[in-house]
Nucleic acid binder design. Sequence first.
DNA 1: CGCAGACGTTCACAGGTCCTTCACAAGGGG
DNA 2: CCCCTTGTGAAGGACCTGTGAACGTCTGCG
Lengths: 119, 119
Amino acid sequence: MEAAQTDDVLYAGELEIRPGDGLVLAAGRALTLSVREFGLLVALVRRAGRIVSRGELYTLVWGSELRDGDRSIDVYVHKLRAKLEAALPAWAFIHTHVGFGYRFAPEPSHVFHNSTTPR
Amino acid sequence: MEAAQTDDVLYAGELEIRPGDGLVLAAGRALTLSVREFGLLVALVRRAGRIVSRGELYTLVWGSELRDGDRSIDVYVHKLRAKLEAALPAWAFIHTHVGFGYRFAPEPSHVFHNSTTPR
DNA sequence: CGCAGACGTTCACAGGTCCTTCACAAGGGG
DNA sequence: CCCCTTGTGAAGGACCTGTGAACGTCTGCG
């Protein structure tokens, strides 16, 4: 089960996640995530560095089989990305592998820092 | 079947391949491969050092018989080479054996080191 | 009871990526 | 040289993912 370990703390870059408390800190500041968003994040972080299929994510977080045509995963990945980016714009955490699934890994986002705009 | 073993990890030079996860690491960094590209790479690496015919590759990855005139293999070998070279310019992995097929083996590429062009 | 806000699910459309097929260039032998 | 094989870039349609919004549910509260 996913919620088994309740005491551990997960770290990923500037993120600190306490599955037992339902708490996520981004650079020390608490994020406000819904139950689904939080479950999805925990599932991804616990498998950081590996590609996780939609089906596996759905089973882990929703607790049942992903039905054909269900886009819930996509929608929640989107919501999670939005909140993570709002908190830590310099980092990209959730990477899409078309045809395979999603991979969690803190990587610098390809954002240009305004100052000296190269030609 | 090709995807049978799901737990093993293949190594080839700076490459690390996890067939079960659909993941390839080049010098530790994740590559983004399509399903076909990934399947082709796995098929080649599993037969590293040997020459594999187009027909065999097609059967392994596409799951059907290679039709006469089909150039898919060539095209995907090209795409794979491009991504591998982008990630590891110093190495050549896929070698052509005209009339026979392709052979996978990490060999130093004939790239000239920095600026000062020899001669 | 009636309402407002947060959530989760489902849609519809937009945007991207992937796979196949062509056409032409380049290579390799005979 | 000529012919067959392989390399390469591009075009088109199929398929996959991103995204904003509509809906229905549930909950706390006046």
